[in-house]
Design a protein around this nucleic acid. Structure first.
Lengths: 258, 258
DNA sequence: CAATTATCCGATAAATCGTCGATTTTACAA
DNA sequence: TTGTAAAATCGACGATTTATCGGATAATTG
């Protein structure tokens, strides 16, 4: 059981992207076509990396077990979203999944462990969904707009999951050193990347710290989502998310064009 | 024990402010002096209300007990901030406070109950501190700037408390129907009030939903604070908070002056 | 089909929460 | 000061929940 911690846990696969991108952009190039292509490839690598981050170290051998794992995750999401993590009982989740309590412990070593694994699959799905939709967008501005709009809309579509992630897990300190933390960090890395591209494209002020700009963007959208999750206001989250995203980007543009 | 829930709990005192403010501003007035005075009084009433929101229904009779209550709150803050709420043990908190576990239950009926009471006193202190500092500011713009800057700075000064509030409690759904939820709502009400004043003063766009504007402001500042709590970046939170606040307000101003 | 491994579960240990009655301390009036 | 009722404290104990372990059952492999 301890072995799980020592290795196999939190694989480092896919961590080489930064180096590759670094090498790629350091190549001596002369025409802007080449540069654009490099940037594009860095963008693809980033998306590739974040959607392929490995989920679990231990892989189940039997089909039945894979089904059980899915049932546990599904049941846990339902129960956690209904009762909140701290009020939820492992026994309830196991019952909901149609297995015994001890079987659940065969899959997850603690309630905390389970809670941190539940949001992962949806997060990966979001990244994949974004990856598909972003293919047609060429400018960083369009990509960023889509990203912000989609994150609000995804929360609306998967309210149980969003409730768990945004209201209970996202800010928690104790997610550190967790696969989930890496995925959450990935979420912000995408925005950071696009903001830096925005500077290159000339519609984001180079005078401002990109990190501060990221905080403004994520903060605004998340605050909107959290308010919706808590009070179901605004009624139409999709539209509010679009308006918020467009407004935030327009605000950034205003900073340079004056 | 159930009685505690039925009454005495979550006092409604101070809930009449809205009505009073409504009546005041509906008075027929002709000159702008009078309007300004009314607005000022509404502002004072708001600050008055939020800093005097009653803390607990049950008041301790003995000096020793009041000291004990303080010791519990102090110990709980330390332990919660160190271990996180869910990992903290009531026994540890009691030990840290120098009392027995059963005595602690004499004061708080559950760990959850305790966790939701801990942030209250600091929140009240923040409001009082702001109230004092805001006295010299006359425009809504200055008051809002001060509010945002002070909230970031207060988090820096009281990092343990901020860690508890921002990373564990603020977004939690289960704070609903709690005295704490009212205080957190108060926090946003102040900003909402100032945003609406900003529209009247002409530097906030009337085309935008005030609620959306509030989300942008709170979201940006909170995201900054959360990032600092998690990663201690940016190093200098006070300066970063000031920059963030000034930037956000400038962004709002940009929306109208073009 | 036998051997091996993976999965599942009932029984039970361990940890933590929360309660109760008895005891001590405090506030205060006489 | 002292008696007394109320307030506060605590140790012992019950209840709930988390987590473990060894064996039974099912799947896989050769």
């Amino acid at each position: 059981m301890l072995q799980k911690h020592v290795f196999g846990w939190r694989s480092q696969a896919g961590r080489h992207m930064d180096l590759e991108a670094f090498v790629a952009t350091k190549e001596v190039v002369s025409d802007s076509e080449q540069i654009a292509s490099d940037t594009a490839s860095a963008w693809d690598s980033l998306l590739q990396e974040i959607s392929h981050r490995p989920k679990r170290a231990t892989e189940r051998k039997q089909d039945r077990a894979k089904r059980t794992e899915q049932q546990i995750l599904h049941a846990a999401l339902r129960v956690f979203a209904r009762d909140g993590i701290s009020r939820s009982r492992i026994a309830d989740i196991a019952a909901e999944a149609g297995i015994s309590t001890s079987t659940l412990y065969e899959y997850y070593k603690s309630k905390e462990d389970l809670a941190y694994d539940v949001p992962l699959s949806h997060l990966a799905e979001f990244f994949e969904s974004y990856h598909a939709n972003a293919a047609s967008r060429t400018s960083a501005r369009e990509r960023l707009l889509l990203y912000l709009v989609m994150s609000a809309d995804y929360a609306r579509e998967h309210a149980e999951w969003a409730r768990l992630l945004y209201l209970e897990i996202w800010p928690s300190v104790f997610v550190s050193d967790t696969e989930l933390r890496h995925s959450i960090d990935d979420f912000t890395r995408v925005i950071l990347f696009l903001v830096k591209e925005g500077v290159a494209e000339g519609w984001v002020s180079p005078e401002r710290s990109p990190y501060e700009t990221v905080a403004v963007l994520i903060g605004g959208v998340n605050q909107l989502i959290i308010t919706w999750l808590l009070y179901r206001k605004p009624k139409n989250l999709t539209r509010a998310g679009t308006e918020m995203a467009e407004r935030l980007i327009a605000m950034l543009e205003n900073e340079v064009s004056r």
